[in-house]
Amino acid sequence: MVISNPAFSYQIRRSQRATQTRIIVTPGKVEVVAPIKVAEHKIHQFVQDKQQWIIQALAKIAAKSQLHNKLAPAVYGHGAEIPYQGASYKLAVRPTKLKRIKIEFCQEFVAHVPDALIIKDHSAEIKEALIRWMKKESKSQVERLVKQHAEKKQLFPQTIKIKTQKSRWGSCGIHNDININWLLIIAPPEVLEYVVVHELCHIKVRNHSVHFWALVAEHLPDYQNRRQWLKKHGSSLMMGL
């Protein structure tokens, strides 16, 4: 059963397992799961009481979805918008005699696509090539940032690795090995710098104490703004290309 009101529509689903009425909000959909014996008018009243929360939840999900759409194009073809360093750049596709897709960047991304691929759907191959390019660029930029910040407090990592991680932006191992998520190359440069400095500071302070944050602030006095950006946009950034 789908019920409509001025703010949103919702569907009621009866469940023998349910012990209490609850609301599930997903993109464009509101579902109310209720026990078998709960009167329908009580369900409607429950939704009415939770109306403001539902509206806010729908808006939050829509905003995340919109941001993700901006980050990742549906198709990696000529004219697509590619996210990079907090901005969006056009993708140009050009044929080449090379046997493998080559990516170049200079105010726009250029994918040099082999003649054999240019005549068919090459979106997946371009995406893979862009990811390879961004991982390589991430390594270069992270190494530059480490060189910039490490000497100040003698925070020298043993190794630097660029990784694909589903739930972490970075880590510092017990042997001072620094791992950085390549997806940070999509974020503004100052956000990548924050994560690098964050992990470098863990070489000296292994926890998140006041002493740790003071050390971060010595390198980046405005680190809180950068950290807040990552908290706000991190879930969409983590979806990747």
Rank of each mutant, 00 (worst) to 15 (best):
I54S: 04
D49A: 07
Y84P: 15
V47S: 01
P73M: 03
T96S: 05
V75K: 13
Q56S: 08
Y76T: 02
P83G: 05
I55V: 14
H68R: 05
A63I: 07
Q56D: 09
G77H: 14
Q51M: 06
P83C: 06
C106Y: 14
Y76I: 06
N69L: 15
A72T: 14
I54T: 01
I61S: 03
S88Y: 15
Y76Q: 04
P95N: 01
R100C: 12
V75R: 13
H78V: 10
L67Y: 15
R94V: 15
L58S: 01
I101S: 00
Q52R: 09
A72E: 11
Y76L: 08
P83K: 03
E104H: 13
K60P: 08
P95M: 06
N69I: 08
A80C: 09
G77L: 09
S88P: 13
Q66M: 12
A72I: 11
I54Y: 07
R100L: 10
L71R: 00
L67C: 04
S88C: 09
G79K: 04
G77E: 13
R94I: 15
N69G: 14
I103H: 02
I101Q: 01
F105P: 15
R94F: 11
L67R: 12
K60N: 08
K97T: 15
L98R: 15
H68F: 14
K60A: 13
K50G: 02
L58A: 01
